[in-house]
Amino acid sequence: MSEEADAHYVPKNIFLTGGAGFIGSHVAIKLCKKYPEYNIVVYDRLDYCSCLENLGELKGLKNFKFIKGDIATADLVTYALLEENIDTIMHFAAQTHVDNSFGNSLAFTQSNIYGTHVLLECAKNCPTIKRFIHVSTDEVYGEGEDFETDPMTEEHILEPTNPYAATKAGAEFLVKSYFRSFKLPCLITRGNNVYGPHQFPEKLIPKFTNQLMSGKKLTLHGDGTNTRNFLYVTDVAAAFETILHKGLPGHVYNIGGDNEVSNVKVAKTLLKIFGLEDKEDEYITYVPDRQFNDLRYTINSSKLHELGWTEEMSWEEGLKTTVDWYKEFTSRYGNIENALVAHPRMLDPIQPESVTTDLGK
Rank of each mutant, 00 (worst) to 15 (best):
C122I: 00
C122Y: 01
A123Y: 03
P127K: 11
F132L: 07
V135L: 06
S136Y: 03
G144E: 05
F147K: 08
T149K: 08
D150V: 09
E154F: 06
E155S: 13
H156R: 15
I157V: 15
L158E: 09
L158P: 00
L158Q: 10
L158S: 08
A166V: 10
A166N: 05
K168E: 07
E172K: 02
E172G: 02
L174C: 06
S181Y: 08
S181R: 12
F182E: 05
K183H: 13
K183G: 00
L184P: 03
L187T: 13
L187N: 01
I188Y: 00
T189R: 05
T189P: 04
R190P: 06
G191V: 12
G191R: 15
N193L: 12
V194C: 13
Y195S: 04
G196A: 07
G196F: 06
H198S: 07
K203E: 14
L204R: 01
I205P: 05
K207M: 10
K207Y: 02
F208I: 11
T209K: 02
N210C: 15
N210L: 14
Q211G: 02
S214P: 00
K216M: 13
L218Q: 06
T225Y: 07
N226R: 09
N226G: 10
N229E: 12
L231M: 15
L231Q: 09
A238I: 06
A238M: 12
A238K: 15
A239H: 07
F240C: 02
E241F: 02
E241P: 05
I243A: 00
K246Y: 13
G250S: 08
G250N: 06
H251Y: 13
V252G: 00
Y253T: 09
